[in-house]
């Protein structure tokens, strides 16, 4: 089995990263999941969280929110509505994102309020994880 696979991180505006990776840790909607070459084909939605890409022994981290991941044996594609390299993720950016999530939570229709609340708490949790608040 090949020990690397194609990894693409795409946002609506541009392709952020396209590389060979040996391991990708994805913040899936139903929990973290790690994809390695040969993973069975899966599509999952993302929750706000940290995406870790290991390539050539080096791990790159991205903060991602909103979108989905397409995992296939030969590669992983992450389609994130927003993605930022961990280094560029400052508390101002996080504050914006959280404020937006909070706003949509407050305006949310009762039927989707739970989802919005979850989004908000995930967003805050991600901030905690990265070490920002």
């Amino acid at each position: 089995m090949a020990d690397t696979m194609q990894f693409d991180l795409v946002s609506p505006e541009r392709m952020l990263l396209s590389t060979q990776a040996s391991e990708v840790q994805i913040p899936g909607a139903e929990g973290e999941m790690t994809a390695m070459p040969g993973h069975s084909p899966t599509i999952t939605t993302l929750r706000p969280g940290v995406l870790k890409v290991t390539s050539g022994g080096q791990t790159t981290e991205f903060a991602v929110t909103g979108g989905f991941a397409e995992v296939a044996p030969e590669g992983v594609t992450i389609m994130a509505e927003r993605a930022l390299p961990r280094a560029e993720m400052t508390s101002e950016v996080l504050k914006d994102w959280v404020a937006e999530a909070r706003k949509s939570h407050e305006e949310a229709h009762p039927t989707v309020a739970d989802d919005a609340a979850k989004l908000l708490s995930d967003m805050v949790a991600m901030g905690g994880h990265i070490g920002l608040d």
């Binding site: 609506p12 899936g28 909607a29 139903e30 999941m33 069975s40 084909p41 899966t42 599509i43 999952t44 939605t45 909103g66 979108g67 989905f68 397409e70 296939a72 044996p73 509505e81």
Partner: peptide
């Protein structure tokens, strides 16, 4: 294409994706 596993269910993913697809 290969047969995908869906996590959560297909309907939920679709409900999440369709608004994004409109925006796209």
């Amino acid at each position: 294409g290969a047969v995908y596993d869906y996590e959560p269910s297909e309907e939920q993913i679709l409900a999440d994706l369709l608004p994004r697809s409109v925006a796209t």
